[in-house]
Design a protein around this nucleic acid. Sequence first.
DNA 1: CTGAAAGCGCTTACAG
DNA 2: CTGAAAGCGCTTACAG
Lengths: 349, 349
Amino acid sequence: MDKPSPTARARAAKRAGRGAVTLSDVAAAAEVAPITVSRAINRPESVSDALRARIRAAIDTLGYVPNRMAGALASAKTGVIPVIVPSLSNVVFVEVIEGIQETIETRGYQMLLGSTDYDLDREAALVATLLGWAPPGMLIAGLRHLPRTATLLRNAGVPVVEFMEHGARCIDMNVGLSHYRAGAAMAEHLLTRGYRRIGFVGVRVRDDYRACQRYEGMHRRILEVGGAEDVLFDYSGGVGQDIGWRALGDVLAMRPVIDALFFANDEMAVGAILRAQRDGIAVPGRIAIAGFNGLPMSALVTPALTTIISPRKLIGRRAAELLLARIAGERPGRRRFDVGFRLEVREST
Amino acid sequence: MDKPSPTARARAAKRAGRGAVTLSDVAAAAEVAPITVSRAINRPESVSDALRARIRAAIDTLGYVPNRMAGALASAKTGVIPVIVPSLSNVVFVEVIEGIQETIETRGYQMLLGSTDYDLDREAALVATLLGWAPPGMLIAGLRHLPRTATLLRNAGVPVVEFMEHGARCIDMNVGLSHYRAGAAMAEHLLTRGYRRIGFVGVRVRDDYRACQRYEGMHRRILEVGGAEDVLFDYSGGVGQDIGWRALGDVLAMRPVIDALFFANDEMAVGAILRAQRDGIAVPGRIAIAGFNGLPMSALVTPALTTIISPRKLIGRRAAELLLARIAGERPGRRRFDVGFRLEVREST
DNA sequence: CTGAAAGCGCTTACAG
DNA sequence: CTGAAAGCGCTTACAG
């Protein structure tokens, strides 16, 4: 079956230059017209049993692999959906991506993944490039893009889902949660618990729009309530746990008055807890620690981490479903979905 | 610049059906032949300044995005390199992918990502599909594939790099480390430290070939040295820290004689350490714990985790470089690279 | 430096 | 159920 004849192998060996086995080769071998081979592959029921068998045999013997590029060009159907995220190092995006992958794959689509590294210029370039594959739709993280990116996307004339955060204005469709409200909810919780000097710790918060919104939500809530204040600690380098580890040390040494820290994500928060364990600092006695995302790890550290759980897989799945529906020509009633979040109060606050 | 005329917009709006702005549209607008537009885009220096400017203007006005499919079909050059990994949930693969991404991107290639979920049948299907994009080369994790997968890959006639583990036999090229030797190194260390009943904890070890090799390396070394024994704990569900957390409890309850645990990865090992903290179990006093991979987190837990550091980014970069060199027609002297590993002895053993 | 012709490997309509 | 013709949007030679 998988053993092409020497000749076929020689042919196949030249693939990607010219000389790969083509539809016509199969047609010649099976003594039918090329279009019949095409049908036998794409709509087998439209071909007689006899021919279908002969064609299948020829395909196997020659080791024929259809050229999707040619197919896509001729039919104007790509089967590849671009997904653009700011980063792959962040588990959160990976989980969303998995949700997307699961969903589109069962419908026969392939994912073309691009990462912008939180750089809006790179994002614009990526969008332009990926649009060049004439995709049936596009999935892109976030609601904030350069004007030229938005223009490209709008003019592409294909459905677009912006996922991750929920907001009032989107290019086409939107699935996510309100990071502003999530920040406010955490502020509410910390204030209720009696904390009054609250630090927000992030990395490159200026670039990380969603973290920025969480900070603003928190900030606003603290102002509203009064009698408390916040500080923003914006680190410029490093990742995850290391930042949290460093941040706890910095804060205790330089801003000892601070009594609670809300980290931009669970990884940092866990880093801070690990540091506290190592140095024998009481959490939440001396200082409270909270995170964001609800990673499994957050429940396992001691003290268990108070955090906000975001439904990441759900975001991915729903974004993909919405897009596929529109690709299929449906007109979903709603184009914006708030998937919500859940404040999970544990031991660290 | 980014503001196409109403007409152009209407045209563009139909993209992905028929009716997108094409090379010919641009050519007509600029009053040149299509081929000149093609040159102005691909080899700008081969076109006079005057024409180049006119063409640029037309491109901007119309909002032209070249159809890469057509380009690829005509030139037999794809610019998309498929990368196949068993999982995206595992940070380790993500880091390798980042190394690949960084490398191929600067050379103008795009990554087409596929995940097999450790299923060899899915892998075969994925390889077939991705080969349909007539890629210039292929990157695939692991050395173990179904015969039909290997045949497809061999017959594709394009360079292939199998990355992750290093082994004697590969389809074409190989970059990775010897997991067998890594397992042996950890066994050596544990034995030297005086541990005699050693457990190896993994998830679906049968499917995770590399974890399996680490176990075998450990097992062999233990047999060679004598006077010690090992047990394999193979969990079937769950992920990362949760498994580690559960495993520690299970082992202490059911196999109290065990004095050291070597986990298939750092996440599980950290989960076990977190459990030990929570339950007040002395590590390494009561039981030693070791991991694999060298994730940042492993250095931050208390006690700090003994682990084996694998150079993941390096694997990605080198695999990509090797592939690109071959795509460029070079004949690298070596086709197999052992990137090695480093045993990092810390507090937990 | 610029262009007319042919073709990449498929599929869409249109016939029979 | 099967096929001959035309075309998808580009690029590769080959001319001038």
